[in-house]
Write a protein that binds this DNA or RNA. Structure first.
Lengths: 341, 341
DNA sequence: CTGAAAGCGCTTACAG
DNA sequence: CTGAAAGCGCTTACAG
């Protein structure tokens, strides 16, 4: 079945030169005479020569593989980041190995280990929402370039690519205030989720800036901010004596759940209760009313992640300069906050 | 930065045995005395030994990497297949390299080439919708085990994992007939898309079986069956003198577009016009009315793809036994075909 | 400008 | 049961 494979040695024999010469010719080494170089390249092409990447990687201690670990590949936002990672890595001559931790910290740790064992040149990683022990990550960082994106942790001293979550939330909540809303609820995550916390900070700052008192009863947390939880938390909110007049959810999914529940109980959206989500998912334009939300450019995140990891791979610095790159988001105003008047 | 790495040689020196012995001990070779084996393993563990996979792969002509090429990673269905591929491959000790062809046949060909060059052990592949020239695929198949899934081609003599598209479409259309529909339109793809064609066959068979005449005006094709096209084609349909009383779309996206247009022009769904989609996407439960659709179990496809590719990798057969595995789908009936009476 | 030789870390046929 | 040695395909410091 397998076809005879062309090696440097074979080319060398046919041309009656040494393998060193062939190797150098193919790698554009300056010492080689143009004549030889052309001759070698021609034959290599004719024989459909493909370097054995494993021999090469093994020899050079480089694999040209970037490892990526994400919590959940099914998320549209994650897919859009991965799409760009694949594209950028490919154009720069890197291959990408993807692993999914499924929000399981044990799996996350194992994957980190196999990535290292596998000899990837660098690692891009988005943490599970339960990751608190960063020891395994520090260990990996000690061996290879490593960058965190989207779901990050301050406890890891490495380059981090994130969105401007605090500011985005601030803008979203201020938008609600601008359309006259005063009792703004927030649906957020329960755990020490970095992203959730950032967005919550933005929420608090927007209220403060506009002299709106914080009402604890309007701050709801859950450990899994899904569509179903959005429904459930919204049921809680509308059974309050003092109902909210707006809901800011830190995910689109929960925001859509909120809309479903509000409609079920015949609340007018946005006149009685406005809703804002986060991430501009596909479904945000399909739900009715269309959801106002924050667009997070996954492609920019992917692009930056690849750019910086390759930089760190190709120019390793002694004193790790760990920067934080903030990607700008965009508030997209749709019917769920567009007053009909 | 990089930590000192443990090699076989180092373990051998510390234990004053040969590297051969260490290698054999670690690989559970039967010849090694239990005493030695234990001693070696203990030290290896203590030193956190990780075999250099590249040396190993290089030596054994095996990489334990499966290459996957998909047209578009952003599709939820594709992601769900990938999710399972990652999971299954990992549990069986394989790593996965993913590439995205972006429905570009030139890129698809390049990717196939780099996968081979990279030395993957096997390739899983879902074709672009423009792939007609299968030469590059035949070439790859000649070198490595290769399996097609979801978007396949009969022209490639290899194992193929598909859903029962013809039957699924047949059931969907028959369901429409059962609720009393007689003028059933189909939105399908223009090009020689294998999946589209299968579903169209199912549509035709259902009509025929139920003695419903085929009306060419109800058969609409497009080269990109998206939400927008769903809207546009539906506008066409409702401007017919003889309007349809049901629409079967071969994608959920176009079905949702259809619903949006029907609602805009105040058609009652499903009473006046019923709608069925295909693939049970996330949005199919968010659109109103909720969309009747066909659930394609992406996980089953992923599972089978990994199972068979590993089989072919580990037990290469001379005469390639190319089977076709059909995964059963499921019609999910929701409001878009549930008559209110 | 070119070649001979060493070596990357591992496995394995051969010998004992 | 263990070891010495060869070799996987490539690159590169060294020599000329």
């Amino acid at each position: 079945m397998k076809k005879e494979v062309t090696t440097l040695k074979k080319i060398a024999q046919l041309l009656e030169v040494s393998t060193s010469t062939v190797s150098r010719a193919l790698n554009n080494h300056p010492d080689i005479s143009e004549e030889t170089a052309i001759k070698v390249k021609k034959l290599a092409k004719k024989l459909n020569y493909m370097p054995n990447i494993f021999a090469k990687g093994f020899r050079q201690h480089r694999t040209n593989i970037i490892g990526v670990i994400v919590p959940n590949i099914l998320s549209y936002f994650t897919s859009s980041i991965l799409k760009e990672i694949l594209l950028q890595a490919e154009t720069k001559g890197y291959r990408v190995i993807i692993s999914e931790s499924n929000n399981d910290i044990k799996k996350e740790k194992e994957m980190l280990h196999t990535m290292l064992q596998f000899g990837v040149d660098g690692i891009l990683m988005s943490l599970t929402k339960h990751t608190v022990d960063v020891e395994p990550i520090l260990y990996a960082l000690n061996q290879k370039p490593l960058i965190l994106f989207d779901k990050v942790s301050r406890k890891v001293p490495c380059t981090q690519i994130i969105i401007n979550g605090e500011e985005a939330a601030f803008n979203a909540v201020e938008h609600l205030i601008n359309i006259g809303k005063k009792r703004i609820a927030i649906l957020k995550e329960f755990e020490q989720s970095y992203n959730s916390e950032k967005r919550f900070q933005g929420y608090l700052r927007a209220l403060k800036t506009n002299n709106i008192p914080v009402d604890e009863k309007l701050i709801l947390s859950t450990d899994d901010i899904s569509l179903k939880k959005g429904r459930r938390l919204t049921s809680q909110l509308i059974s309050l004596k003092d109902k909210p007049d707006a809901i800011f959810s830190i995910t689109d999914a929960a925001a859509i759940g909120a809309i479903q529940t509000l409609k079920k109980f015949n609340f007018k959206i946005p006149d009685e209760i406005a809703v804002i989500g986060f991430s501009n998912s596909l479904s945000s334009t399909i739900v009715e009313p269309k959801l106002t939300t924050i667009d997070q450019p996954g492609n920019r995140i992917g692009e930056m992640a690849v750019k910086y990891i390759i930089e760190e791979i190709e120019e390793p610095k002694e004193n790790s300069t760990s920067k934080t790159i903030e990607i700008k988001t965009n508030l997209i105003i749709r019917d769920s906050t567009l007053l009909s008047i």
